[in-house]
Simulated assay, not measured.
Amino acid sequence: MRRLLFLNGIKAFEAAARSGSFAAAGAELNVSAAAVSRMVHLLEERLGVALFERKANRLVTTAAGRAYQNGLTPIFDALASLTAQVTAPSSVRVLTIGVGPTFAMKWLIPRLADFRKQEPDIDVRITTGGAAVPFGEDWSCGIKLGDGEWPGLIAEPLFAADLLPVCTPRLAGALKRPGDLKGPTLLRVAHSPDDWPSWLEAAGTARITARGPEFEFYGQALQAAVDGLGIAMGIRPYIDDDLAAGRLVAPFALSVPKGMRWYLVYRGFSTAQRDFAAFRRWIVRAAAEPATRRKGLRHAG
Protein backbone atom coordinates (compact mmCIF):
# COMPACT_ATOMS: atom_id res chain seq x y z
CA MET A 1 0.00 0.00 0.00
CA ARG A 2 1.30 3.47 -0.91
CA ARG A 3 2.41 5.42 2.19
CA LEU A 4 2.16 9.20 1.78
CA LEU A 5 3.10 11.40 4.71
CA PHE A 6 1.52 14.79 5.22
CA LEU A 7 1.03 16.01 1.63
CA ASN A 8 0.47 19.62 2.66
CA GLY A 9 3.83 19.62 4.41
CA ILE A 10 5.53 18.04 1.42
CA LYS A 11 4.03 20.65 -0.88
CA ALA A 12 5.08 23.46 1.49
CA PHE A 13 8.62 22.13 1.71
CA GLU A 14 9.02 21.76 -2.06
CA ALA A 15 7.80 25.31 -2.68
CA ALA A 16 10.09 26.73 0.04
CA ALA A 17 13.11 24.79 -1.19
CA ARG A 18 12.51 25.79 -4.81
CA SER A 19 11.84 29.47 -4.07
CA GLY A 20 14.36 29.85 -1.25
CA SER A 21 12.03 31.36 1.33
CA PHE A 22 8.93 30.67 3.38
CA ALA A 23 7.47 34.00 2.27
CA ALA A 24 7.76 33.19 -1.44
CA ALA A 25 6.36 29.71 -0.84
CA GLY A 26 3.46 31.22 1.10
CA ALA A 27 2.66 33.61 -1.74
CA GLU A 28 2.66 30.69 -4.19
CA LEU A 29 0.46 28.51 -1.98
CA ASN A 30 -1.76 31.37 -0.83
CA VAL A 31 -0.96 30.92 2.87
CA SER A 32 1.20 32.87 5.30
CA ALA A 33 4.94 32.39 5.64
CA ALA A 34 4.34 31.30 9.22
CA ALA A 35 1.96 28.58 8.02
CA VAL A 36 4.57 27.28 5.59
CA SER A 37 7.18 27.26 8.35
CA ARG A 38 4.86 25.28 10.65
CA MET A 39 4.02 22.71 7.97
CA VAL A 40 7.69 22.21 7.11
CA HIS A 41 8.55 21.84 10.80
CA LEU A 42 5.82 19.21 11.23
CA LEU A 43 7.09 17.39 8.14
CA GLU A 44 10.62 17.34 9.55
CA GLU A 45 9.30 15.92 12.83
CA ARG A 46 7.37 13.19 11.04
CA LEU A 47 10.31 12.29 8.81
CA GLY A 48 12.83 12.54 11.62
CA VAL A 49 15.16 14.44 9.26
CA ALA A 50 16.17 18.12 9.14
CA LEU A 51 15.38 19.52 5.69
CA PHE A 52 16.53 23.11 6.20
CA GLU A 53 19.27 24.97 8.02
CA ARG A 54 17.58 28.13 9.29
CA LYS A 55 19.96 31.04 8.61
CA ALA A 56 19.35 34.62 9.73
CA ASN A 57 18.09 35.90 6.37
CA ARG A 58 17.74 32.83 4.20
CA LEU A 59 16.89 29.16 4.00
CA VAL A 60 19.56 26.59 3.15
CA THR A 61 18.56 23.03 2.39
CA THR A 62 20.45 20.24 4.10
CA ALA A 63 21.84 17.35 2.05
CA ALA A 64 18.66 15.41 2.79
CA GLY A 65 16.58 18.44 1.87
CA ARG A 66 18.33 18.86 -1.47
CA ALA A 67 17.85 15.20 -2.32
CA TYR A 68 14.18 15.38 -1.33
CA GLN A 69 13.52 18.54 -3.34
CA ASN A 70 15.34 17.18 -6.42
CA GLY A 71 12.97 14.24 -6.38
CA LEU A 72 9.81 16.14 -5.50
CA THR A 73 9.95 18.98 -8.04
CA PRO A 74 9.74 16.70 -11.12
CA ILE A 75 6.85 14.84 -9.45
CA PHE A 76 4.88 18.04 -8.90
CA ASP A 77 5.73 19.22 -12.43
CA ALA A 78 4.46 15.93 -13.81
CA LEU A 79 1.29 16.22 -11.72
CA ALA A 80 0.65 19.75 -13.01
CA SER A 81 1.24 18.62 -16.60
CA LEU A 82 -1.05 15.62 -16.20
CA THR A 83 -3.78 17.81 -14.71
CA ALA A 84 -3.46 20.26 -17.61
CA GLN A 85 -3.78 17.40 -20.10
CA VAL A 86 -6.84 15.94 -18.39
CA THR A 87 -8.66 19.26 -18.06
CA ALA A 88 -7.76 20.68 -21.50
CA PRO A 89 -10.33 20.37 -24.30
CA SER A 90 -9.57 17.32 -26.38
CA SER A 91 -9.21 19.49 -29.50
CA VAL A 92 -6.41 21.59 -27.98
CA ARG A 93 -2.87 20.28 -28.56
CA VAL A 94 -0.20 22.79 -27.55
CA LEU A 95 3.58 22.35 -27.71
CA THR A 96 5.62 25.16 -26.13
CA ILE A 97 9.29 25.24 -27.16
CA GLY A 98 11.82 27.40 -25.32
CA VAL A 99 14.71 28.53 -27.54
CA GLY A 100 17.14 31.41 -27.92
CA PRO A 101 16.11 34.07 -30.47
CA THR A 102 18.88 33.27 -32.96
CA PHE A 103 18.23 29.52 -32.92
CA ALA A 104 14.55 30.24 -33.49
CA MET A 105 15.22 32.55 -36.45
CA LYS A 106 18.15 30.76 -38.05
CA TRP A 107 17.20 27.09 -37.69
CA LEU A 108 13.90 26.21 -36.07
CA ILE A 109 11.39 28.56 -37.71
CA PRO A 110 12.61 27.90 -41.29
CA ARG A 111 11.98 24.18 -40.68
CA LEU A 112 8.72 24.33 -38.76
CA ALA A 113 6.63 24.07 -41.91
CA ASP A 114 7.90 20.52 -42.29
CA PHE A 115 6.85 19.64 -38.75
CA ARG A 116 3.47 21.32 -39.23
CA LYS A 117 2.95 19.30 -42.40
CA GLN A 118 3.47 16.12 -40.40
CA GLU A 119 1.55 17.25 -37.30
CA PRO A 120 -1.01 19.86 -38.41
CA ASP A 121 -3.11 19.48 -35.24
CA ILE A 122 -0.32 20.54 -32.87
CA ASP A 123 -0.31 24.24 -31.97
CA VAL A 124 3.41 25.10 -31.78
CA ARG A 125 4.30 28.03 -29.56
CA ILE A 126 7.84 29.39 -29.40
CA THR A 127 9.10 31.34 -26.44
CA THR A 128 12.53 32.93 -26.68
CA GLY A 129 15.16 34.17 -24.26
CA GLY A 130 18.90 34.23 -23.79
CA ALA A 131 21.15 31.27 -23.13
CA ALA A 132 20.89 31.76 -19.37
CA VAL A 133 17.07 31.65 -19.25
CA PRO A 134 15.98 28.81 -16.93
CA PHE A 135 13.72 26.03 -18.14
CA GLY A 136 10.21 27.47 -18.05
CA GLU A 137 7.46 25.75 -16.08
CA ASP A 138 5.13 25.93 -19.10
CA TRP A 139 7.70 24.64 -21.60
CA SER A 140 7.13 21.29 -23.26
CA CYS A 141 10.84 21.26 -24.07
CA GLY A 142 13.76 23.56 -24.74
CA ILE A 143 16.74 23.75 -27.09
CA LYS A 144 19.82 24.96 -25.27
CA LEU A 145 23.53 25.38 -25.83
CA GLY A 146 25.68 24.08 -22.99
CA ASP A 147 27.49 21.17 -21.42
CA GLY A 148 24.41 18.95 -21.13
CA GLU A 149 24.18 19.29 -17.35
CA TRP A 150 20.84 20.75 -16.27
CA PRO A 151 19.73 19.23 -12.94
CA GLY A 152 16.34 17.56 -13.08
CA LEU A 153 16.21 17.60 -16.89
CA ILE A 154 17.09 15.17 -19.65
CA ALA A 155 19.49 16.62 -22.24
CA GLU A 156 19.58 14.87 -25.61
CA PRO A 157 22.40 16.04 -27.94
CA LEU A 158 21.38 17.52 -31.30
CA PHE A 159 24.30 19.39 -32.88
CA ALA A 160 27.95 20.19 -32.39
CA ALA A 161 28.62 23.92 -32.06
CA ASP A 162 31.57 24.62 -34.36
CA LEU A 163 32.94 28.12 -34.98
CA LEU A 164 34.20 29.57 -38.26
CA PRO A 165 34.32 33.10 -39.70
CA VAL A 166 31.74 34.08 -42.32
CA CYS A 167 31.26 37.14 -44.50
CA THR A 168 29.92 38.28 -47.87
CA PRO A 169 31.60 37.00 -51.04
CA ARG A 170 32.83 40.56 -51.71
CA LEU A 171 34.70 40.78 -48.41
CA ALA A 172 35.96 37.21 -48.75
CA GLY A 173 37.77 38.15 -51.96
CA ALA A 174 40.40 40.03 -49.94
CA LEU A 175 40.96 37.17 -47.45
CA LYS A 176 43.60 34.77 -48.68
CA ARG A 177 44.91 33.69 -45.27
CA PRO A 178 43.85 34.22 -41.62
CA GLY A 179 46.52 36.90 -41.24
CA ASP A 180 44.52 39.09 -43.63
CA LEU A 181 41.83 39.54 -40.97
CA LYS A 182 41.77 43.00 -39.40
CA GLY A 183 40.52 43.61 -35.87
CA PRO A 184 38.10 46.49 -36.62
CA THR A 185 36.23 44.37 -39.19
CA LEU A 186 35.62 41.43 -36.81
CA LEU A 187 32.03 41.53 -35.55
CA ARG A 188 31.62 40.43 -31.93
CA VAL A 189 28.85 38.90 -29.79
CA ALA A 190 28.75 40.28 -26.25
CA HIS A 191 27.89 37.04 -24.44
CA SER A 192 30.55 35.01 -26.31
CA PRO A 193 33.79 37.01 -25.98
CA ASP A 194 36.00 33.92 -26.35
CA ASP A 195 34.84 32.96 -29.85
CA TRP A 196 37.26 35.09 -31.85
CA PRO A 197 40.27 34.52 -29.57
CA SER A 198 39.71 30.74 -29.74
CA TRP A 199 39.52 30.68 -33.52
CA LEU A 200 42.38 33.14 -34.06
CA GLU A 201 44.65 31.16 -31.74
CA ALA A 202 43.83 27.92 -33.57
CA ALA A 203 44.58 29.70 -36.86
CA GLY A 204 47.97 30.84 -35.57
CA THR A 205 47.02 34.52 -35.62
CA ALA A 206 46.52 35.20 -31.91
CA ARG A 207 48.14 38.64 -32.33
CA ILE A 208 44.94 39.87 -34.01
CA THR A 209 42.35 41.28 -31.60
CA ALA A 210 38.68 41.56 -32.56
CA ARG A 211 37.66 45.21 -32.19
CA GLY A 212 34.65 45.47 -34.50
CA PRO A 213 31.06 46.36 -33.59
CA GLU A 214 29.55 44.32 -30.74
CA PHE A 215 26.06 42.81 -30.79
CA GLU A 216 23.86 41.19 -28.16
CA PHE A 217 22.99 38.07 -30.17
CA TYR A 218 24.59 35.93 -32.87
CA GLY A 219 21.64 36.64 -35.14
CA GLN A 220 22.36 40.37 -35.10
CA ALA A 221 26.04 39.84 -35.87
CA LEU A 222 25.22 37.45 -38.72
CA GLN A 223 22.73 39.91 -40.21
CA ALA A 224 25.41 42.61 -40.01
CA ALA A 225 27.76 40.26 -41.87
CA VAL A 226 25.12 39.66 -44.57
CA ASP A 227 24.83 43.45 -44.91
CA GLY A 228 28.59 43.73 -45.47
CA LEU A 229 29.47 45.43 -42.18
CA GLY A 230 32.26 42.99 -41.40
CA ILE A 231 33.22 39.39 -40.69
CA ALA A 232 31.16 37.50 -38.10
CA MET A 233 32.14 34.45 -36.12
CA GLY A 234 29.63 31.92 -37.32
CA ILE A 235 28.36 29.08 -35.16
CA ARG A 236 26.69 25.96 -36.48
CA PRO A 237 23.89 25.34 -37.19
CA TYR A 238 23.06 29.09 -37.41
CA ILE A 239 25.09 29.62 -40.58
CA ASP A 240 24.23 26.55 -42.66
CA ASP A 241 21.28 28.10 -44.51
CA ASP A 242 23.12 31.37 -45.20
CA LEU A 243 26.08 29.42 -46.61
CA ALA A 244 23.80 27.26 -48.77
CA ALA A 245 21.99 30.34 -50.13
CA GLY A 246 25.27 32.16 -50.85
CA ARG A 247 24.40 35.07 -48.59
CA LEU A 248 27.56 34.29 -46.66
CA VAL A 249 30.72 32.35 -47.40
CA ALA A 250 33.33 30.82 -45.11
CA PRO A 251 36.70 32.08 -46.39
CA PHE A 252 38.75 29.57 -44.40
CA ALA A 253 38.39 25.81 -43.98
CA LEU A 254 39.31 25.89 -40.29
CA SER A 255 36.45 25.35 -37.85
CA VAL A 256 36.96 25.22 -34.09
CA PRO A 257 34.72 23.44 -31.54
CA LYS A 258 33.07 25.90 -29.19
CA GLY A 259 33.34 23.38 -26.36
CA MET A 260 29.56 23.05 -26.00
CA ARG A 261 26.75 21.32 -27.85
CA TRP A 262 23.10 21.97 -28.66
CA TYR A 263 20.67 19.82 -26.68
CA LEU A 264 16.98 19.06 -26.68
CA VAL A 265 16.10 19.55 -23.01
CA TYR A 266 12.98 18.15 -21.37
CA ARG A 267 11.56 16.62 -18.21
CA GLY A 268 11.53 12.84 -17.93
CA PHE A 269 7.76 12.53 -17.85
CA SER A 270 7.46 14.36 -21.20
CA THR A 271 8.31 11.20 -23.12
CA ALA A 272 4.83 9.89 -22.34
CA GLN A 273 3.16 12.92 -23.97
CA ARG A 274 2.27 12.26 -27.60
CA ASP A 275 2.81 15.82 -28.87
CA PHE A 276 6.27 16.08 -27.36
CA ALA A 277 7.10 12.58 -28.59
CA ALA A 278 6.17 13.63 -32.14
CA PHE A 279 8.32 16.76 -31.94
CA ARG A 280 11.22 14.83 -30.43
CA ARG A 281 11.14 12.31 -33.29
CA TRP A 282 11.04 15.11 -35.83
CA ILE A 283 13.84 17.29 -34.43
CA VAL A 284 16.20 14.37 -33.78
CA ARG A 285 15.71 13.30 -37.39
CA ALA A 286 16.12 16.87 -38.70
CA ALA A 287 19.29 17.38 -36.66
CA ALA A 288 20.76 14.13 -37.98
CA GLU A 289 20.25 15.09 -41.62
CA PRO A 290 23.40 16.16 -43.49
CA ALA A 291 24.21 19.84 -43.05
CA THR A 292 22.58 22.03 -45.67
CA ARG A 293 24.63 22.03 -48.86
CA ARG A 294 27.48 24.41 -48.25
CA LYS A 295 27.88 25.93 -51.68
CA GLY A 296 29.12 29.10 -49.96
CA LEU A 297 32.04 27.29 -48.29
CA ARG A 298 35.40 27.76 -49.96
CA HIS A 299 38.76 26.78 -48.57
CA ALA A 300 41.60 29.14 -47.75
CA GLY A 301 44.56 29.28 -50.04
Score class of each variant (00 low, 15 high):
174 A>H: 10
145 L>E: 03
203 A>P: 02
133 V>Y: 07
153 L>T: 03
178 P>S: 04
177 R>Y: 09
205 T>H: 09
134 P>Q: 01
175 L>H: 03
120 P>L: 00
159 F>V: 06
116 R>Y: 01
155 A>S: 15
152 G>K: 04
110 P>Q: 04
120 P>R: 01
108 L>S: 04
157 P>H: 08
164 L>R: 15
143 I>P: 02
153 L>M: 13
157 P>R: 05
191 H>F: 11
124 V>P: 06
207 R>P: 00
202 A>I: 02
161 A>L: 02
161 A>Y: 00
113 A>M: 05
162 D>E: 13
185 T>M: 11
163 L>F: 05
192 S>N: 06
159 F>W: 15
194 D>H: 14
158 L>W: 07
149 E>Q: 15
209 T>I: 10
136 G>L: 13
140 S>D: 11
132 A>Q: 14
173 G>F: 10
198 S>V: 00
172 A>H: 08
154 I>Q: 11
119 E>Y: 13
177 R>V: 12
165 P>G: 11
150 W>K: 10
186 L>Y: 05
169 P>S: 02
186 L>C: 08
205 T>N: 07
150 W>H: 12
126 I>G: 02
161 A>M: 03
141 C>F: 07
183 G>N: 04
170 R>S: 11
206 A>M: 01
170 R>K: 12
135 F>T: 01
186 L>Q: 04
146 G>T: 09
172 A>R: 05
119 E>V: 04
137 E>Q: 13
191 H>V: 14
201 E>T: 14
167 C>V: 10
194 D>M: 10
112 L>W: 06
207 R>K: 11
172 A>K: 06
140 S>Q: 06
165 P>A: 11
196 W>R: 08
113 A>D: 14
119 E>A: 15
167 C>M: 07
144 K>W: 02
